[in-house]
Amino acid sequence: MGSKLSSIEDAVAVVESGMTIGIGGWGSRRKPMALIRALARGPATDLTVVTYGGPDVGLLAAAGKIRKLVSGFVSLDSIALEPHFRAARQRGEIEYAELDEGMLQWGLLAAAHRLPFLPIRAGLGSDVPATFPGLRTVTSPYADGEELVAMPALTLDVAFVHANRADAAGNAALLGPDPYFDDLYCLAARHRVLSCERVVETAELTKEGPVQALRINRMMVDAVVETPNGAHFTSCVPDYDRDEAFQRAYAAAAGGDGSGWPAFRDRYLAGDEATYQRAVREDREALA
């Protein structure tokens, strides 16, 4: 098994302007934030972003990277609405292809299975056909004749996901209670980048959790990046919970008239990932 270990910078350098990227996790939970922070300071722009949205959308929106968003919500969970997302939307800056949560899963599954679409009931009767332009229906060829939504495949150029553990080849353990849809993002993408809390020997992967935690294997991954605390400030259980104090500070800086954002950005996001993590550690030491 060849090593796929990569630096953060090399791993995100595959993203070119105009690409469609998918981001694992859910809301403010197990988001590949180290990779997102790198994307936000990188050159690629004009992105289409497919995600169960959280601060990944917020950071990319604040950096002006998103042309189009495909999602059913953008939330910080303990704070209902992502403030950067709210501001960008209310300024009319993001084209929002808004769809039902289940439709997003179906779109990823269709892409994973190399199908043009999958039928689903969700969306019928709602304004999803208006908010997700181009959506079509399909009539069952069987006796029932039901007319259902034909959810198109959401094929991704690049997928970014964050795991608890991985080996250098890209076999990964998701040790928390919910795998979210990370395996589907990997299956739906042409190029797959996996960050993790810790790179371990392959034999270690089944030591900390059941074999069912190995939702992602090496044929689903092209690059592996070790990013300790790399989901911060989102949760990455059992390694750590969401940093609620930091998230509150983030939301306060991003909200209101936006005047608090430059100071926050300069303190945490102006440098590389090591600089970010150092600032987070300094905060903790100051509180201790």
């Binding site: 059913g72 919500f73 709210r86 009767g125």
Partner: peptide, 21 residues
């Protein structure tokens, strides 16, 4: 207007699927 809302809300979430299922 959905293209440029006066107020962005939490998002459609699972409401379309819930209500028809």
């Amino acid at each position: 207007q959905h293209a440029r809302p006066k107020a962005q809300l939490i998002g459609t979430r699972g409401a379309p699927g819930n209500t028809v299922n």
